[in-house]
Design a protein around this nucleic acid. Structure first.
Length: 195
DNA sequence: TCCCCGATTAACT
DNA sequence: GTTAATCGGGGAG
């Protein structure tokens, strides 16, 4: 599958976030094994957005958000979790798209080791889980083998949107985007229909 | 330097 | 439904 070029992310996060749905995050591990997962849930964080880490300007932590688009901004939170973001907008703009959930496609056995569970549904369901499944933390630096692919055979799905999760401000902006299904965070496998 | 709290998760009742 | 785990960022002093 073709890699999405960096310029594909040189747009507002609110445009990139829904566009990323259905695209595939891929990573080559040090032993050559490749992990792949289809992105099904994202959130946009713009610079003039009180919920964004970039809202208070350029600090050491968020400097990569202000860098060139297409890079990965990884942050550490709650003392134990890492979250992955794709940097968006032109260089100098502090914006990014949080990768919240994905459908595992390839390398699930390895993801299970990283996650410490065999439950496929839980491998990449939630931003902390997604990053852990891909063994991504702040040691990932420029040049690491991680990229995004666009699957030309993918069928388009209906993109839903709503308020972002886990924030106290900026809740009026409906900048969470997802594709319905069991892989989205805060969802459980569909219960048997009563009919 | 101190202190609060977070773009979360898992394990509880 | 609630809450502990766990630590770095960044504002206040």
């Amino acid at each position: 599958m073709p890699r999405s070029p960096r310029r594909a992310f040189a747009r507002p996060a609110t445009e990139v976030a829904p566009d990323l749905l259905g695209q595939v995050l891929a990573r080559r591990l040090s032993d050559g094994r490749v992990l792949r997962a289809r992105i099904v849930e994202t959130e946009a964080y713009e610079q003039d957005d009180p919920a964004s880490h970039a809202y208070r300007g350029r600090t050491p932590r968020v400097r990569v958000m202000f860098g060139p688009p297409g890079h990965l901004y990884v942050y550490f939170t709650y003392g134990m979790h890492h979250c992955m973001n794709v940097v968006t907008g032109p260089k100098g703009t502090g914006s990014a798209v949080l990768l919240r959930a994905a459908q595992p496609l390839e390398g699930m056995d390895r993801m299970s080791v990283h996650r410490g569970t065999d439950r496929i549904l839980d491998l990449c369901r939630g931003p902390g889980r997604f990053a852990q499944a891909f063994d991504v933390d702040r040691s990932l630096v420029r040049g690491s083998e991680i990229w995004i692919e666009r699957d030309p055979t993918a069928v388009s799905a209906i993109v839903r949107s709503g308020p972002r999760i886990g924030i106290r401000v900026g809740t009026d902006r409906p900048w969470r985007f997802w594709i319905d299904g069991p892989w989205v965070s805060l969802s459980r496998p569909a219960a048997p229909s009563p009919r």
